[in-house]
């Protein structure tokens, strides 16, 4: 499996993603500057976290018009994998790859902490190595991760198993108490209907080595490698 990590002005998790895939997973990885109109021949595109365009206007609102996004769209349409992490997820929402939108965290504060996630769908290309309901300990770091969608969209997401991760307690309860940002129904990650585009607020690349306190995020990369 080969990967490309897209770099927008203001991305700041691009080298972390590169490191997790290249050094930890031993994958060939290329950086792709957002001005590029084409992608190298890769199986996986990573839209990394950060503050693309300073989060001006709305998170991800300007990055979605970067020239590379047309190539990312074609990559996704061909059925190959795209993962958007944190700001990458916000870009996927603004670009319409995934339904819904992000609001300010209910606390209005930037939250940087480890959270527990419950795997809601382990039958995706991103989660195949996870057990049903497997709990992952992965950090979040965002000010706008309060996932919103209307009732109709929410029903569609639920009915077609597109909710992949929910914020949970260490024992797997998905109550309000364990919802850090106010996301609808504790949603932390969703996938498109076709099953090849995943958006998630938590950072698996920051939880891929034991020296980083958790290796749970690595299972997402391992699932992709197959």
């Amino acid at each position: 499996m080969k990967a490309a990590v897209v770099v927008f002005p203001g991305s700041n998790c691009d080298t972390d993603c590169f490191h997790a895939l290249f050094d930890v997973m031993k994958m060939p990885v290329k950086f792709v500057w957002h001005k590029e109109g084409t992608l190298p021949d890769v199986d996986l595109v990573v839209l990394p976290g950060g503050f693309s365009y300073g989060d001006y206007l709305r998170t991800g609102a300007i990055a979605r018009f970067s020239p590379v996004m047309e190539a990312v769209r074609q990559h996704a349409e061909s059925g190959r994998a795209v993962i958007g992490i944190c700001n990458g997820f916000q870009i996927l929402l603004e670009a319409g790859f995934l339904p819904g939108a992000m609001l300010r965290n209910k606390t209005l504060s930037f939250i940087c902490t480890h959270v527990w996630l419950r795997t809601e769908n382990n039958a995706t290309i991103f989660t195949g190595k996870l057990n049903p309901k497997e709990l992952l300990r992965i950090p979040i770091a965002h000010g706008e991760g309060n996932y919103y969608c209307d009732d109709k969209t929410f029903k569609r997401l639920e009915d077609s198993n597109q909710i992949v991760f929910r914020y949970a307690s260490e024992s797997g309860e998905t109550t309000d108490e364990f919802n850090p940002n106010g996301s609808r129904d504790n949603i932390a990650g969703i996938i498109n209907a076709k099953g090849n585009v995943l958006g998630m607020m938590p950072h698996p690349e920051r939880a891929s080595e034991s020296m980083l306190d958790s290796v749970d995020g690595r299972k997402i990369w391992e699932s992709l490698v197959g």
Binding site: L57, A61, I62, E94, A101, L103, D150
Partner: peptide, 8 residues
């Protein structure tokens, strides 16, 4: 196209 997000 840009200034508003019709979802929210």
């Amino acid at each position: 196209k840009l200034l508003i997000n019709p979802v929210i």
